[in-house]
Design a binder for these strands. Structure first.
Length: 952
RNA sequence: GCCGACGUAGCCCAAUUGGCAGAGGCACAGGCUUUAGGUGCCUGUCAGUGCGGGUUCGAGUCCCGCCGUCGGCACCA
């Protein structure tokens, strides 16, 4: 099947028609001019790109940012640039509205694909990466994006990652002061220890400690630290990965390999210190509630209490959000991995417990988390003391308690917790009642009110009067509200020394090291005793050493007990280094890990601002100008990028890590903004039909024939249709090159912006694109003679009707563009153009306003038309039209008249008519009189300027 | 199971504080242009807002209850 070519030039096509060939000519020409002239360069107030006069000459600053891409070798499809086009239209609009706009694009170029390609082909990842970046820059330029190309950076450039390493050193050389709730330089901590203002954690004085002991204590305070802890080991990738990179079913999000929990010595970052601020400061951000909810959920703050239960193996501390239910705790459950299990296990139980632990260990996390599974568990034979009533309660182990959350042990309150209730039922454990559920609760379950829990079908969760909840010092009996119950119990726990109120988080510290090649080396060396030392700033960057062995040792994906071996380990010449770090020349060993891919993206927006600065990652005055708090918007404005556009998939990865780094830099005084991204906008995805054959394998969507009605076939065999994100894996990608060939970049841009709201996902329909192409053809024809190419615009003023339409259009378009509602702005502009098409000739005033309004959307054709209209400067900085308020109001208006809510007639009244006038006119209308048929109106409602409703 | 978003023509989508359901594009039909097809131009057809209630003079919009789609979280104590 071949699509009819809808746009090709044929011999009778006028030579100056806006065809795809002309569009391409115009586009390539202006792209060259823009590049040559540096049209989109934004002036800085200070630093290497300083042009203070130019800054002063422009209006308020505006920082527009896209989530930068990984430079894939495959190239772009039409789904990729949706957000980029959106930011470009916005940036161009705001330039015309007078703002000083900084807007560029960089590349997040470290990461696995280039490394894996290098392993396969022997091509160094730097070469692949640079080729891909060059290719991607070319593709982005072809879209006409108005980037300041001087500011484009790649995270893989040593001059860039020099500063990534510098920030790592800042984090390493900082500690979190819990009292001041901020990070401070580690030197200040050392000074406090040395001055005796602070004792070692074990209570000894600083002076009593050996240097080695001091080192351990200091290193334990650092925000970046090495620790032996359970980490996610992925043998298939040969590296460890962060919690955020493990999918819900226990696999790596890259490569989909199994991930195992293993104790390993790795770099961590103390993001947990910032948990509260990361949650609380969400209030300051103009982000969607959905993303904020995801971040809150990931951090997982829950208020509760720690409670101590004494046992033969020692104190077992549990975390609970319902300390008020402590009187109902009739057994305990420990995670099978809990360290006390061996000691608690009675001799006759040891075998059973060992078997259960083995069985639990064999299960993946996701299997353990399947809550529909029936509860399993084993009694240890041991008992603990419930501190609130002294009762001896049995200690069980069960895999529904997870070692990774809370303390790995729970107090079970079966009457008030679904899981504990199920467990108690299954193993016939006691279920004491401690609350009287409301009568309605019993009624719904077909029961009479009873405290005999044997009759209860399930646990009761909620507020209800407490019973059986008192001891000699405390009584909750009669309280009805859990907030009160919790507060009373927490107070008692503290008095009794049996526990305290606390806050628990799901968030874990960030596992920061990877055993790969293509990443930022750590600016760390180890001395003979294995102590880490940060290299001084003067020794940065630590460049990635050359090698032709890029691969870490990888293992069978299920080879759980293998160990990571970084590619850098093998480079002995590089690893061993002789340096003077203040104690004279000594030999050190370099750290052979590299940073995770997220490192470079944690701060890139600031390098855009001052990309060539060799003194600092970003001049403070430059950072403050572009990112400082905008207190004129809101007194508590946190600062940061004015508009950040990207996909929702980074809700808890990049966006959480970047906020964390930014806050550290803020605490240490390196930036003036508390938050990196003041406003976040999530663009939708472009979806496309994908087709599967009978083997459930995707087939090339472009070669599928058929329709909704007749069914679809591929190679004459039936296939089934589904919808999915456009991309290689679904074989449904559409290349932008096809669109340029057939319509040009302006049409593609316009189509993507017109097809729906920017934040909505919508299906791509190639056949719809032609509508925007026709619009641009009409626009062109309204101003240019298709035979001669001459401008046909006339100097006569527009007629009143056209003038009013123009100003109404301007009024709406300005608002819609500012609010990123490009689809409705475009609809209004098409409407205006359709009206202009009906005129004999296009008045200049209308033509110029239309070109200016469309310039952000379709910049190439508008730049061309702007010249044809006789101007010799770029339209980029020409003021966006402003509506004349006088032309927005009509003298008379037509309003509908309803009778009992149904439209029965229309009246024409003066626009400023008062209510009485409108009412009189409505009641005088023939059709209304006929509808009323003699009945007397009970009431007449007049909505000024909108309608009249007569009620009978 | 919990949280969030969304359901408007054959399709993508519009619709100020609740105020005439239709702006725009596609598709479809007819016409003009054309040797013809296509391009281009003109004209036109189609729904009453997922379902059921409620509030209101008036509901796509607000409230309640369902149904469906998408996304996130999930034995989190």
């Amino acid at each position: 099947m071949s699509e009819p070519d809808t746009t090709a030039n044929t011999p009778d096509t006028p030579s100056h028609r806006y065809t795809s060939a002309l569009a391409q000519d115009i586009e390539l020409r202006w792209q060259q001019v823009w590049a040559d002239d540096g049209t989109f360069n934004a002036p800085n107030p200070a630093g290497p790109l300083a042009e203070p006069e130019a800054v002063a000459a422009r209006g308020d600053k505006l920082f527009v940012l896209d989530m930068f891409p990984y430079p894939s070798g495959v190239g772009l499809h039409v789904g990729h640039p949706l957000g980029f086009i959106g930011t470009d239209v916005y940036a161009r609009f705001q330039r015309m509205a007078g703002r000083n706009v900084v807007y560029t694009m960089g590349f997040d170029a470290f990461g696995l694909p280039a490394e894996q390609y290098a392993v396969q082909t022997g091509t160094h990842p730097a070469i692949t990466t640079n080729d891909n970046i060059a290719n991607m820059r070319r593709q982005l330029r072809r879209l006409g994006l108005s980037h300041d190309m001087r500011r484009s950076v790649s995270t893989t450039d040593p001059e860039y990652y020099r500063w990534t390493q510098w920030i790592f050193s800042q984090v390493f050389n900082a500690w979190y002061d819990e009292d001041e709730e901020r990070a401070r330089p580690i030197d200040e901590l050392i000074a406090e220890f040395e001055a005796g203002d602070r004792d070692a954690p074990d209570g000894r004085e600083w002076s009593e400690l050996s240097p080695a002991e001091r080192n351990v204590i200091i290193d334990d305070h650092r925000l970046a630290y090495v620790s032996e802890a359970p980490v996610n080991w992925c043998p298939g990738l040969g590296t460890v990965v962060a919690n955020e990179e493990v999918t819900a079913d226990g696999r790596s999000d890259r490569g989909n390999f199994p991930v195992f929990k293993r104790n390993m010595r790795q770099w961590m970052m103390r993001i947990t210190s910032y948990a509260d601020r990361l949650i609380d400061d969400l209030e300051l951000l103009d982000w969607t509630d959905a993303i904020k909810a995801m971040q809150r959920n990931w951090i997982g703050r829950s208020h509760g209490a720690k409670v101590d239960f004494e046992s033969s193996a020692g104190t077992i501390t549990v975390f609970t959000t319902r300390p008020d239910t402590l009187f109902g705790a009739s057994f305990m459950v420990l995670s099978p991995e809990h360290p006390y299990v061996d000691e608690l296990a009675g001799p006759d139980k040891a075998d059973e417990i060992a078997a259960y632990r083995k069985q639990a260990a064999a299960k993946k996390d996701f299997e353990r988390q399947d809550e529909t599974r029936e509860k399993t568990g084993v009694f240890t034979g041991a008992y603990a003391t419930n501190p609130v009533n002294g009762e001896q309660i049995p200690i069980w182990i069960a895999d529904y308690v997870l070692m990774g959350y809370g303390t790995g042990a729970i107090m079970a309150v079966p009457c008030g917790d679904t899981r504990d209730f199920e467990f108690a039922r299954k193993f016939e454990l006691e279920i004491p009642a401690i609350q009287t559920p409301p009568a309605a609760w019993f009624e719904e379950r077909g029961l009479d009110v009873t405290l005999d829990t044997r009759q209860w079908p399930e646990a009761f969760i909620g507020d209800a009067p407490y019973v059986n909840s008192s001891n000699a010092e405390l009584s909750l009996d009669g309280l009805v509200n859990k907030v009160e119950g919790i507060s009373e119990m927490n107070a008692w726990l503290e008095r009794a020394g049996a526990g305290e109120a606390t806050i628990n988080y799901k968030l874990r510290d960030w596992l920061f090291s990877r055993q790969r090649y293509w990443g930022e080396p750590f600016p760390i060396v180890y001395d003979d005793d294995g102590n880490p030392h940060a290299l001084p700033d003067s020794m940065l960057p630590v460049e990635l050493p050359e090698t032709d062995q890029f691969s870490p040792r990888t293992f069978g994906p299920d080879d759980e007990f293998s160990n990571p071996e970084s590619p850098l380990d093998r480079l002995e010449q590089w690893v061993n280094v002789e340096l003077d770090l203040g104690d004279g020349m000594q030999w050190y060993r370099r750290d052979t890990n590299v940073m995770p891919q997220w490192a470079g993206s944690c701060w890139y927006e600031m390098r855009y601002l001052d990309p060539t600065n060799t003194e600092t990652f970003c001049d403070p005055a430059v950072e403050e100008y572009w990112m400082g708090p905008q207190t004129q918007i809101r007194p508590d404005h946190p600062g940061g990028v004015d508009l950040y556009v990207g996909g929702v998939e980074h809700a808890v990865l990049h966006l959480l890590y970047a906020r964390f780094w930014h806050k550290v830099l803020f605490d240490l005084g390196h930036v003036s903004s508390k938050e990196p991204y003041a406003r976040l906008f999530n663009q939708g995805y472009i979806m496309a039909a994908a087709f599967k054959d009978e083997r459930e394998i995707y087939v090339e969507a472009t070669e599928v024939e058929g329709s909704d009605d007749d069914g679809f076939t591929y190679d004459d065999k039936p296939v089934t249709r589904e919808w999915g994100k456009m991309g290689k894996s679904l074989k449904n990608a559409v290349s932008p090159d096809e669109m340029y060939e057939e319509y040009g970049a302006d049409t593609l841009r316009l189509y993507e912006m017109a097809m729906g709201p920017l934040d909505a996902s919508r299906p791509w329909e190639t056949r719809d694109v032609v509508g925007m192409y026709r619009f641009l053809q009409r626009l062109w024809r309204n101003m240019v003679d298709e035979e001669t190419g001459a401008c046909t615009v006339v100097d006569e003023a527009p007629d009143d009707e056209t003038d009013k339409l123009l100003h109404r259009t301007i009024d709406v378009v300005r608002v819609e563009m500012d609010a990123l509602r490009f689809n409705t702005a475009i609809a209004k502009l098409i409407e205006l153009n359709n009206a202009v098409t009906k005129l004999d000739a296009t008045p200049r005033a209308v033509a110029e306003a239309m070109v200016r309004m469309l310039a952000p959307l379709v910049p190439h054709v508008c730049e061309e038309l702007w010249r044809k209209l006789g101007h010799d400067e770029t339209v980029t900085y020409i003021e966006f039209p402003t509506a004349d308020p006088a032309l927005l109001v009509d003298d008379t208006i037509e309003v509908p008249v309803q009778v009992n809510g149904k439209v029965r007639g229309r009246i024409t009244i003066p626009a400023d008519a008062d209510q009485a006038t409108a009412e009189a006119a409505a009641l005088a209308d023939e059709k209304v009189i006929a509808t009323l048929d003699g009945r007397t109106p009970k009431k007449v409602i007049v909505v000024s300027g909108r309608m009249v409703n007569v009620v009978v």
